[in-house]
Amino acid sequence: MTTTMSALRRFFAAEAAYITEGGDFTAMAACLAPSVVMYQASHLPYGGEWHGQDGIRRFMDAMSETWLSLEFLEQRFVVDGDAVVIYNVGRMRARATGRVLDTSVMQLITFRDGLICEIRPFYLDTAAVMAAVTDT
């Protein structure tokens, strides 16, 4: 469990740095299995399936195009073997509109051999995400 939690904390810190500071993907890649898959809600600007480390890098680029900043305000972790459920409360600022979104995302992250192999986020309110990032 300690290795899993350490990898998750490194991953989330690298994710926030990548978006907020225009980061280096190396720190994130070190936490990911080569065959990692992420499933995002299809109607989000960065929606769809993202395959492999290069897919996650492209996802992060799409996130960075959408969001100017990402800050984790609270995180709660429930570990069950190789699966971790994370309750994230976060604050994001949209790049296009400047709007700030405070929201929650639940994630199911699966590990294999100490590396993240699958990421499934579940947004509290995808309509609020879209309202924050688009001019309506």
Rank of each mutant, 00 (worst) to 15 (best):
Y46C: 00
Y39A: 14
E65K: 06
F122Q: 09
A41S: 12
T66Y: 03
H43G: 11
Q53W: 03
T20H: 03
R112V: 09
V89I: 11
T97P: 05
V133S: 09
T26W: 05
S64Q: 04
V133P: 06
M60G: 02
A96K: 15
Y39V: 15
G81R: 04
L70S: 11
D113I: 02
A7V: 13
G98P: 02
L44T: 08
A41I: 08
V37G: 00
L115Q: 07
V105I: 08
D135A: 11
I116T: 04
T97F: 04
R112Y: 06
V84S: 03
M106R: 08
A17F: 02
P121R: 07
R95H: 14
G52I: 00
D61S: 02
G98H: 02
A132S: 08
R9Q: 15
G48H: 00
V37T: 07
E71H: 05
I116L: 09
F77E: 12
L44I: 05
V78Q: 10
L32P: 01
D24S: 08
A96H: 13
V79K: 08
S35W: 13
I56R: 03
S64T: 07
R91C: 14
A62F: 01
E118Y: 00
I56C: 00
F111T: 05
D102H: 11
R91D: 12
R91H: 12
E71L: 06
Y87V: 15
M1N: 11
L8A: 07
S6R: 12
A94P: 06
Y46F: 02
D125W: 06
G55T: 01
V105D: 04
L8M: 14
M130G: 10
E21L: 12
S35M: 14
V129Q: 06
G48L: 02
A14T: 01
F77K: 12
A27M: 09
